[in-house]
């Protein structure tokens, strides 16, 4: 009888410990998720971008501005041959054919900043996530480099550091101090120049006002000579970006996948 009691007590002890362990683990996993959703509901701004393909000349100034602003690797011919050069904003060549009519077009493609991102869903460590203002972020220090998010992104707009990124000496001094430099083995992506949002917010706070249209400008927008890129708050009905988003020319890339991109294109007229 004594032995039995001992066994039961032992069993209860172990069982309790096991249940506690499982509870601690799952509550942690759920808590991370719940927080995400609460914060999302609170967010005031919904940053979005409109790219007018009718204005775009395909000059690639945006590509250069983006890589300089965000300390992207320079890359050489060998890396380019394997598609390993990292450019958060790329120009996608598109061919549309209808009967004997063939039309070539160039589409500047940053991260589409999906409202329902397929990449954040599959990340095992929440290293990629959506912030309260709808920007899909990436925590480099948490990323394990499994490349699951890269595979899940239908736009192929996430990038993996296959090796330690290299820069010639000359280009190392003017690194943008607001943007962390990535290292081998982690994934990176377009963050809508999030550092510029921080700066705009700080400035607005100093001046004791709310953030206004034009305070927060992305590097690609600032560089575009044809003013094809418009950036702003989709939650503000007065903003230019919300007005343009309603244009009869507007469309979203691969809209049928249900990812709800916050980058909106205007068809060529």
């Amino acid at each position: 009888m004594e032995i039995k009691d001992q066994n039961r007590r032992d069993f209860l002890k172990w069982f309790g410990a096991a249940v506690g362990g499982v509870w601690a683990f799952t509550s942690r996993a759920f808590a991370a998720r719940g927080e995400d959703e609460q914060v999302q509901a609170r967010g005031k701004h919904r940053w979005g971008m409109v790219i007018d393909l009718d204005r775009c000349t395909g000059c690639q100034a945006c590509v250069v501005a983006c890589s300089v602003e965000n300390n992207q690797m320079l890359g050489g011919p060998e890396e380019a041959a394997l598609g390993r050069v990292i450019r958060w904003l790329k120009i996608l060549p598109r061919t549309e054919a209808e009967g004997s009519h063939i039309r070539q077009s160039l589409v500047p493609m940053p991260c589409q900043q999906c409202e329902d991102p397929p990449c954040t869903r599959v990340c095992p460590t929440s290293a990629t996530f959506m912030n309260p203002e709808g920007i899909v972020g990436q925590v480099y220090d948490r990323c394990i480099g499994c490349r699951y998010c890269v595979n899940a992104c239908p736009y192929t707009c996430k990038f993996f550091n296959w090796g330690e990124p290299q820069w010639p000496k000359e280009t190392q001094t003017p690194f943008n101090p607001d943007v962390s430099v990535r290292y081998k083995g982690v994934v990176e992506k377009c963050l809508f120049c999030h550092q510029r949002l921080q700066r705009a917010k700080d400035k607005a706070r100093e001046e004791g006002r709310k953030i206004e249209e034009g305070d927060y400008v992305t590097a690609c927008q600032a560089a575009c000579p044809a003013q094809a890129i418009v950036f702003g708050d989709l939650n503000d009905p007065e903003s230019e970006v919300s007005r343009l988003a309603l244009s009869h020319r507007s469309f979203k890339m691969l809209e049928e996948l249900g990812t709800k991109p916050k980058v909106i294109y205007l068809r060529e007229g």
Binding site: F25, A32, S126, A127
Partner: peptide, 26 residues
């Protein structure tokens, strides 16, 4: 072997994300 950062393997248990099939798999 396939991971870019094998040294951070335990991040999967430290910061588990329940919706990821990789977590289910592990």
């Amino acid at each position: 072997v396939d991971l870019g950062r094998p040294d951070r393997l335990f991040n999967v248990l430290l910061y588990p994300h329940l919706t990821s099939p990789i977590l289910w798999d592990i």
